[in-house]
């Protein structure tokens, strides 16, 4: 009902302002909160409306290949946008890094994770959660960090995998996993539990790239959103959610 009302209002808005337009955006789940804020600002500042869909990057990729009408993809990685560009599904040269993810070791229990991550070496826990490294960049980064620390072989039997970092967060938040690797953006607003921001030199940069997709090619609203993401106002929001730039 609310949604119906909203779309009615939007319809009215479309007719009243000639330049106002809609843009369909597929957003990586980890970027949900900052993107909602940015989309609201974007609409206020430009009159364009960003219609957001949140989900897993891999699923978006499959949907885009099969004709989903998304005009922009805010990916959780840099590989997918590159691949889309190469396959002609993304607009050549349109992709850029809109955020750099920060990996954090986190536990829902206060004081469990120390400020230097020494808890990893103690092995004093039953399950350590991370996202499926095959599909989630944060998972791959976590494996990389553990490997560099020389701890991965010892910890491997204790690893449990979430399908994505949202589920990984859930494992830890419910206490089923004592601790685990998630994105700083997931815990930065809440501040519960204890955490250690993994030093950037322990894992490859987690670039999150945006790309304009074929349906958005000549659309002013799509261009406008890409430009807006590069602007200071959006960048401030992105940083406040625990991303680097």
């Amino acid at each position: 009902m609310k949604r119906a009302l909203l779309s009615l209002l939007l319809l009215g808005a479309t007719f009243s302002t000639a330049s106002a337009d809609e843009v369909q955006v597929a957003v990586a789940a980890n970027f949900t909160a900052p993107m909602q804020k940015i989309a609201a600002d974007f609409e206020k500042d430009t009159g364009h409306k960003a219609v957001l869909a949140f989900g897993a990057t891999g699923q978006f990729y499959a949907q885009i290949r099969n004709g989903a009408p998304f005009e922009i993809l805010l990916s959780a990685d840099d590989k997918t946008p590159a691949k889309l560009e190469k396959e002609g599904l993304g607009v050549q040269g349109s992709s850029f890094t809109y955020a750099i993810g920060k990996l954090v070791l986190w536990s829902a229990k206060p004081g469990f994770v120390d400020s230097e991550g020494k808890v990893l070496g103690s092995g004093n826990f039953q399950h350590i959660a991370l996202a499926n490294p095959k599909v989630a960049p944060y998972g791959a980064a976590a494996i990389e960090a553990l490997t560099k620390l020389g701890l991965y072989p010892a910890l491997e039997p204790k690893v449990v995998q979430g399908e994505n970092i949202a589920q990984t967060y859930q494992f830890i938040a419910t206490g089923n996993a004592d601790l685990g690797f998630v994105a700083l953006s997931q815990i930065v607003k809440d501040g519960k539990g204890s955490s250690w921001i993994v030093p950037a030199n322990l894992y490859p940069v987690i670039r999150q790239d945006a790309v304009i997709l074929a349906p958005g090619k000549d659309k002013p609203a799509a261009q406008a959103l890409m430009a807006y993401l590069k602007g200071d106002k959006a960048k401030a929001v992105i940083r406040s959610y625990g991303y680097d730039l």
Partner: peptide, 23 residues
């Protein structure tokens, strides 16, 4: 609730999902 652990909790349906996600 599985945690995607090979031979313990990674069943076929999850494996399919993994494959699709990993393209």
């Amino acid at each position: 609730i599985g945690g995607n652990i090979p031979d313990r909790t990674r069943v076929v349906s999850v494996e399919i999902y993994n494959h699709v996600e990993a393209l």
